[in-house]
Design a protein around this nucleic acid. Structure first.
Lengths: 212, 212
DNA sequence: AATAAACTAAGTGATTCTACTTATAGCTTA
DNA sequence: TAAGCTATAAGTAGAATCACTTAGTTTATT
């Protein structure tokens, strides 16, 4: 109960990191042991500081927060990760838990939930914020398949990233050393999986969901 | 000096609002007099509470933070608005000042800058965070035209919004009651202005800059 | 060993987008 | 009044995407 819980905060917006640090430091047995604004620093600090909890924004600019989370969990199994995200997409929640996260908050969560989640996860429980819980429930009730929406493969995600950057199939093929017709096939499969009509919408979808 | 400065916070992420409230309430002569997570509530609260300063996130989900800012400034000229944004795009900074904002911070600003900006703006000065100042300087030095990048017209922005939603020129034309060839012309002009090669990149650009 | 999933590639045809140009009408501003 | 911007529209040509299909190879998993 009175043991100090060491927390590492990872988010690429300084103002947000400082604001959360402020909140957490008002809680008696919490101590913010470090902050990082990118995946590399996060990994380095996790090794040095050995935090109990990492608050991880999975929408980092450069690299994917998914990979960073995966690395940390693999290398430091004792460290628990609470994922923090701007979106309420259920497939992303499932994915991050599959990787090994122990908690999930959105930026619509309350301060109370933030504190609660850290304590609960430290005590060995899993934590999902109210907003997401309700959405899972609603999704289960009306039987829609939002949470069973097909996942993209890593190759497909790679290609999505190039598409958002405005590359043509030909250019992507050259970069990946595959035929432009193969890239076309991937594009087609991606759009079909996600039920999206074209690259323009795919692009904004990817931005929104934090794939890029 | 000892007068209380009333601050209204507008941001669509509860956790961020609470975090900033936390910071500001630790400053002796600051008082957070309200929070809003959308443009309508912001306007209502501005009328009721008559804050000295409004901290306005200009990347609100539903409506544009630009319009909200414009409305508030027109209706309550005594209220100063400090714009807060995730991006460091100089053309957006210029635009928000043209509308009538008195300060600009990014989410990479520090806590110190947040507090400083409120005090300075309350004292009648304008405020721009360090990060943006440096970018303006750099831009002026190497003479690149990033800050003179052409602005999109309101029609063009309207069309960009439809493009990001995956509509074809034909569909957009039908919605706007204009020829699909006119939409094509607009598309061409948009891409040329922004020096972007295709709709896919345009789409992620628009997401990134908060146009949609 | 067998099955499934993912990656690869290509054919075909339709649709859509992009580039560049010309042109008219309306509105604003110097 | 002239110049300039915006919105409208269309011609032409070429590039790229999208839909749907078939199919061989590799990689995992059971």
């Amino acid at each position: 109960m009175s043991e100090t819980i060491k927390v590492l905060i990872v988010d690429d917006h300084k103002l947000i990191v400082e604001a959360w640090t402020n909140i957490l430091n008002t809680v008696a047995n919490f101590a913010v042991c470090g902050c990082a604004d990118n995946a590399e620093d996060a990994l380095f600090l996790a090794h040095r500081e050995r935090p109990d909890i990492i608050l991880m924004d999975i929408n980092l600019k450069g690299s994917s927060g998914f990979e960073a989370t995966e690395n940390i969990i693999n290398q430091l199994p004792k460290t628990k990760v609470i994922a923090l995200s701007i979106h309420d997409d259920l497939s992303i929640v499932k994915k991050i838990f599959a990787i090994g996260a122990t908690g999930y908050l959105t930026k619509n969560s309350s301060k109370k939930e933030l504190i609660e989640s850290i304590q609960k996860v430290y005590d060995g429980e899993k934590y999902i914020c109210e907003e997401i819980k309700e959405r899972f429930l609603a999704s289960a009730m009306n039987g829609n398949d939002e949470n069973t929406k097909k996942e993209l493969t890593s190759k497909e995600i790679e290609i999505v990233k190039f598409i958002t950057k405005g590359l043509t199939s030909k250019e992507i093929g050259e970069l990946l050393n595959i035929s432009n017709r193969t890239v076309d096939t991937h594009r087609h499969n991606i759009l079909k999986k996600l039920e999206i009509p074209n690259a323009a919408q795919l692009s904004s979808w990817a931005k929104e969901k934090g794939y890029v």
